[in-house]
Computed example of a mutant assay.
Amino acid sequence: MRITQGCFSFLPDLDEEQIKAQVEYCLRNDWAIGVEFTDDPHPRNTYWEMWGHPMFDLKDAAGVMMELNACRKAHPDVYIKLIAFDSTRGFETVRTSFIVQRPKVEPHFAMTRTEVRGRTVNITLTERA
């Protein structure tokens, strides 16, 4: 089972030109770009590590790609995603995020549904090798 978090997660992985096009779209909308990474893609892990600082004043996609490639070099076998913040109303809101790197071997999860009292369903998510 492939990890599906963020935009484009059900599509094939984006290539470099497609990633750059998405970054350019975000920058045209005045959204700040951030790079995050993790080795724990569990769906409840919403706090990925931030690579550097969000790039609030950056206007060129080449700068984002440079930071992304530096993160890839430092962390070659983890999940990396780009996030875009919109701060036009005075608070940060994530407008989009998408995975740009996956490890060679992704963990697999099994989901078990158990019916209990009434119409309640308990869901257990476990990692499989």
Rank of each mutant, 00 (worst) to 15 (best):
I19A: 03
I19D: 00
I19H: 02
I19S: 00
K20A: 06
A21K: 08
A21C: 09
A21N: 08
Q22E: 15
Q22K: 08
V23F: 04
E24Q: 14
E24M: 09
E24W: 09
Y25W: 13
C26Y: 01
L27K: 04
L27P: 03
N29C: 09
N29A: 08
N29M: 13
A32Q: 04
A32Y: 02
A32H: 00
G34S: 09
E36P: 06
F37V: 06
F37T: 05
F37M: 05
T38A: 11
T38K: 05
D39M: 11
P41S: 07
P41N: 07
P41D: 07
P41E: 07
H42M: 13
R44S: 14
T46N: 15
Y47W: 14
Y47V: 12
E49W: 06
G52Y: 05
G52R: 06
H53S: 15
H53L: 13
M55V: 05
F56E: 14
F56G: 06
D57F: 08
L58D: 10
L58E: 12
L58W: 05
L58R: 08
K59L: 11
G63E: 02
G63D: 03
V64R: 00
M65G: 04
M66D: 13
M66P: 04
E67T: 03
L68Q: 01
L68Y: 02
A70T: 08
A70K: 10
A70Q: 12
C71Y: 00
A74E: 10
P76S: 11
D77H: 06
D77S: 04
Y79D: 01
K81Y: 09
K81W: 07
L82E: 01
A84V: 01
A84G: 05
F85S: 00
F85W: 01
F85N: 00
D86R: 06
D86E: 11
T88P: 11
R89F: 08
F91D: 13
F91A: 10
E92S: 09
E92Y: 06
E92T: 06
R95H: 10
R95S: 10
S97H: 09
S97F: 06
S97E: 11
F98A: 05
F98R: 04
F98I: 04
F98H: 06
F98G: 02
I99K: 00
V100M: 02
R102P: 10
R102I: 11
K104R: 15
V105N: 14
V105C: 13
E106M: 09
P107R: 03
H108Y: 14
H108K: 15
A110M: 15
A110P: 11
M111H: 12
M111T: 15
M111L: 13
R113A: 15
